[in-house]
Simulated assay, not measured.
Amino acid sequence: MSDSWRAGSETGSRVGVDEELDGTPYPENVSGAHDSGAGPQRLLSCLGIVVLVVAVLAGGIVWLFQDELFRPFGDVRACEGSDKQLPGVIDAGGASIPADASEIHYFTRNGSAQVSFLSSQIPDYLHRAGLVPDGKPLFDENYGSAYALGDDETELPDGLCGSPLRGPAWTYHATGATGPGVNVLVERSPMVNDSFRTPARTVVTYDIR
């Protein structure tokens, strides 16, 4: 085989490998040149999705537990500024608040507590707390008196949160052996003089033992 034929063969082989038929060279590393930034971009996209998911989950958790997270002691009943947590069953003024009590809120400061709640069992609570003896009229002025709050006027003691108490109202007071004792303010029916609203909002102020 002649040297000229061998040289032509080698030249032809290189042309077939390195060039297309029209003489245009094949591009080198076609995929590598364009994918050089794909990895970091994909990683950033994934991180963005993860951050978004975490933010949404965190926001949902905060929304679900916002009362527990932002109320004193994590107690949804406690009003802002309270300095002592009350027990699960609140013993207000010597008797536990009624079993049907709802919308319960309390504020504690300097050894005193104010508790607000709605209940249809106020007469029973007043008897159990010793504010009105059994068999005595609920509105006997020996045990209580009218409170200076006109019809549909409202009042909410300083520090206490929740809905205000509406007039007319009646107040009961019992002096304790070692201090001011207990004061109970109850919504009175605007229609029937010797009855409470049903349910009636009640605010109990007493010393914390």
Rank of each mutant, 00 (worst) to 15 (best):
G162R: 00
G176T: 00
E68N: 08
W5Y: 11
D151Q: 12
A78R: 01
G16C: 09
G111C: 03
P98Q: 03
G176F: 00
Y26H: 14
E10L: 15
S189D: 12
F107W: 06
T11G: 10
A7S: 12
L156D: 07
V62M: 05
P137G: 02
R209M: 09
F196A: 01
D158L: 04
V15H: 12
N142M: 07
G181Y: 00
T171A: 10
Q121H: 10
D207V: 10
A38Y: 06
F117A: 06
M191H: 10
A169G: 08
E153G: 04
T11L: 13
I104W: 07
G167A: 08
A58W: 07
G181V: 00
L126W: 07
G135Q: 07
H127N: 14
D100I: 02
V89F: 07
Q114E: 09
D152L: 04
L43M: 12
Q114P: 00
T178E: 09
N142Q: 13
G144S: 03
V184F: 02
E28V: 15
F107N: 02
V51E: 10
T11Q: 13
A95Q: 05
L64Q: 15
D67R: 05
L21Y: 06
Q114V: 08
L44S: 11
L138D: 00
G39P: 01
G179I: 01
S116V: 02
S36W: 10
F70L: 14
H105L: 02
D22E: 08
E153M: 07
V56N: 06
G60Y: 08
S120H: 07
F65V: 05
V203K: 04
K84N: 08
C79A: 04
C161D: 11
G16V: 11
S96N: 12
D18K: 12
S120E: 13
E28Q: 12
L69A: 09
G59L: 06
G32H: 07
L126V: 05
A169R: 06
V54C: 10
A113R: 03
N110C: 01
N110Q: 14
